[in-house]
Computed example of a mutant assay.
Amino acid sequence: MGTVLPLPYFSKPRKQPFSANWAIDDRCRSFLIIRWTTWKVKTNSMQSFIALFLSLAIFTNSLQGTEFLQSIQSVFISNADFPIVILLLIRLPSL
């Protein structure tokens, strides 16, 4: 057999200093406090987005069952080679 080589320095178990533990704990605590207050403020204004996406989902599901969807898609598919026309078709209902 050969000689046994010692383990490298970085694989030896070392104790973490108290100051590092305190710094990590303090940062985590302050991060959680800031995150919680920010979350409370930001989620109060998300109610309108929830209503928007819920109504969009209902509209999309009801549109899937109609022939109207194929008629709209056929216009866009036939103009797929003309991006300017597609942009104008998207803009057309708002004029």
Rank of each mutant, 00 (worst) to 15 (best):
I86C: 05
T37D: 15
N61K: 01
F68Y: 02
P6S: 02
L95P: 01
F10N: 08
L88K: 07
S48M: 09
T37Y: 13
N79C: 02
L87Q: 07
S11D: 09
L89I: 03
S19E: 10
I33G: 12
Q16S: 07
A23F: 08
S74M: 06
F10A: 09
M46T: 14
I24M: 13
K42C: 13
G2I: 09
S71H: 10
N61W: 03
A51Q: 08
I34C: 14
K40I: 14
P6N: 02
K12D: 03
N61D: 02
S19M: 05
S78M: 10
F68P: 01
S45K: 11
M1V: 11
F68M: 01
D81R: 04
S55L: 02
L89V: 00
T3P: 10
I90Q: 00
V4P: 06
G65K: 10
T43P: 09
D25C: 13
N21E: 11
I50F: 09
Q70H: 07
I24V: 13
A80V: 08
D26F: 14
F68K: 05
A57F: 03
K15S: 10
R14N: 08
G65L: 11
V41L: 13
C28N: 15
W39C: 15
S55K: 03
L87P: 00
P6R: 04
R27C: 12
A57G: 07
S45H: 09
T43D: 11
L95V: 07
Q73V: 04
N44C: 14
W22P: 08
S30I: 11
D81S: 08
W39S: 15
I24S: 13
I84T: 07
M1F: 12
L92T: 02
S55T: 07
I50Y: 10
S74E: 08
K15N: 04
T3S: 12
F49H: 10
M46V: 13
P13E: 03
M46N: 12
I86L: 07
L88P: 04
L87K: 08
N61P: 00
F18M: 08
W36Y: 14
G2S: 13
D26E: 15
P83S: 00
A80K: 06
W36K: 15
N21M: 12
L89P: 01
L95D: 03
A57K: 00
A80F: 07
P6A: 04
P6W: 05
I58D: 08
R27I: 12
F76D: 02
N79E: 02
I77S: 03
I58V: 12
T43C: 12
V41W: 12
I86K: 03
T3M: 11
D81N: 06
P17A: 08
A23R: 11
R29G: 10
L63M: 06
I84S: 07
S11F: 07
V41M: 12
L63A: 07
F82D: 04
V41K: 14
I72F: 05
S30N: 11
R35E: 15
I58H: 06
L69G: 01
T38V: 15
S94K: 05
A57V: 02
G65T: 05
